[in-house]
Simulated scan of single mutants.
Amino acid sequence: MKLPLWKCHGSGNDFILINEYEAILFSEEERVTLSQAFCDRTGKLGADGLLFFQNSERADGKMRMFNPDGSEAEMCGNGLRCIGRFACEQFHTDSVSIETLKGVSQVVRDKPIYKGVETYQAELNTISLNIKDIPIAMTSKSLIDQALPELATGLTFTAVSMPNPHLVSIVSQIYDTTLQEIGEKANQLTTLFPKGVNVNFCQIIDEAAIYVRTYERGVGLTQSCGSGMSASALVYCLLGYYPFSKSIEVYNRGGLVSCQATVSHHQHSVLLSGNATFMFSNTIEFDFPNINLMTAYCDHVFVEEIQNYGRLLEYSEGLINNFRFE
């Protein structure tokens, strides 16, 4: 079969996007196979995840996101912005509602986070602090700034369902090797985290600015994680470092985003604003089960978008160098 697809990214967290809005093209088993093949960095494409844009009875469209190991994620903040942009351009509008596995989120075109960078704001509104929603095999109702001796010593964690599961630790310095070790260990501790968990290290770089690094369940260390940055911004406010309802700049390996955490009647939400960059469009020719024998035909490269995003990276790196890390 011949399949058109798009390569896109939010904060360097890159995805292959497949449009199934008019018709469902693949079975559930085939989605797993596609995600494993298309996301393979040693193959012809390579990505952090595979996005499917589908029709919805509850919203303007639906997002499904599969990790490189074939597992399906409940939420993906960076992917949601990319899907939101794709839907807005398909429907010729600046605002769409997108159904995810756990709810409906609004995605709107936002003012550019940097000159020439297409920017979209996604609402993450299915958030819970109840450990049953993560889940964690503990007797307490929540885990807020507490130690997990089974996982690590000298660190405290806060657990948040975004609704995909997240642990956030505020640290004085981020070390990739430590995060990798803790992330891997957390996802091996199925007695504690039966569905696995994303692990985030959050470093304070200024009163209204944090730096976040994420170990993603089913992926590993990535350039950024939209729901992880949102969870970290929420925890930053929850622990009293910064007031709710004010924007926080969140820096990452892939640039920066803006997060605004809010709370109303004990319900939390986060507005996540950042780039939704298209890199190229391709047509892939393949057949099951020999999907690895695919042939890729390049249709279009979004050169200007790639260049503008590169300037954003330089800008964010320059800002980080001006901060005094604590």
Results as ranks from 00 to 15, higher is better:
Met1Gln: 12
Leu3Gln: 03
Trp6Phe: 15
Trp6Arg: 15
Trp6Ile: 15
Gly10Phe: 04
Gly12Trp: 05
Asn13Thr: 00
Asn13Glu: 07
Ile16Leu: 11
Asn19Gly: 05
Tyr21Glu: 15
Glu28Pro: 12
Glu30Cys: 09
Thr33Val: 15
Leu34Met: 08
Ser35Met: 08
Ser35Ala: 14
Asp40Phe: 13
Arg41Tyr: 10
Gly43Met: 08
Gly46Ile: 00
Gly46Trp: 04
Phe53Lys: 15
Asn55Pro: 11
Ser56Lys: 08
Ala59Val: 09
Asp60Ser: 05
Lys62Val: 09
Met63Cys: 04
Asn67Ser: 05
Asn67Asp: 05
Glu74Cys: 10
Met75His: 03
Gly77Ala: 01
Leu80Pro: 00
Cys82Gln: 01
Ile83Trp: 07
Arg85Gln: 09
Phe86Pro: 11
Glu89Leu: 14
Phe91Ser: 11
Phe91Val: 11
His92Gln: 14
Thr93Asn: 12
Thr93Gly: 08
Asp94Cys: 13
Ser95Gln: 14
Ile98Cys: 07
Glu99His: 07
Thr100Glu: 09
Leu101Val: 13
Gly103Tyr: 02
Ser105Val: 11
Val108Glu: 15
Lys115Glu: 13
Gly116His: 02
Gly116Asp: 04
Gly116Arg: 07
Glu118Val: 08
Thr119Ala: 07
Thr119Cys: 06
Gln121Phe: 06
Ala122Pro: 08
Glu123Lys: 12
Ser128Tyr: 03
Asn130Phe: 05
Asp133Arg: 06
Ile134Phe: 00
Pro135Phe: 03
Met138Asn: 07
Leu143Lys: 00
Ile144Arg: 04
Leu151Glu: 02
Thr153Arg: 13
Gly154His: 05
Leu155Pro: 02
Phe157Lys: 00
Thr158Asn: 02
Pro163Ser: 12
Ser169Arg: 03
Ser169Leu: 03
Gln173Lys: 14
Ile174Val: 12
Tyr175Cys: 14
Thr178Pro: 09
Leu179Ser: 01
Leu179Val: 03
Ile182Gly: 00
Glu184Asn: 15
Lys185Trp: 09
Lys185Thr: 08
Ala186Gln: 03
Asn187Thr: 01
Thr190Leu: 15
Thr191His: 14
Pro194Ile: 10
Lys195Thr: 14
Val199Ile: 06
Asn200Gly: 02
Phe201Gln: 00
Ile204Met: 15
Ile205Ala: 06
Ala209Phe: 09
Tyr215Gly: 02
Arg217Ile: 04
Val219Glu: 01
Val219Lys: 00
Thr222Gly: 06
Ser227Val: 06
Ser230Lys: 02
Ala233Phe: 01
Cys237Ser: 08
Leu238Gln: 01
Gly240Phe: 05
Gly240Ile: 00
Tyr242Phe: 10
Lys246Asn: 07
Ser247Ile: 10
Ser247Trp: 11
Ile248Leu: 06
Glu249Lys: 15
Asn252Tyr: 08
Val257Ile: 12
Ser258Ala: 13
Cys259Tyr: 01
Gln260Leu: 10
Val263Glu: 11
Leu272Ser: 03
Leu272Pro: 02
Ser273Trp: 10
Gly274Phe: 03
Asn275Asp: 12
Thr277Ser: 04
Ser281Tyr: 10
Pro289His: 06
Asn290His: 13
Met294Tyr: 09
Tyr297Asp: 13
Asp299Trp: 10
Asp299Ser: 08
Asp299Leu: 08
Val301Phe: 04
Glu304Ser: 12
Glu304Leu: 11
Glu305Ile: 06
Asn308Arg: 08
Gly310Met: 04
Leu312Pro: 03
Leu313Asp: 02
Glu314Asn: 14
Ser316Leu: 05
Asn321Gly: 14
Asn321Pro: 11
Arg324Phe: 13
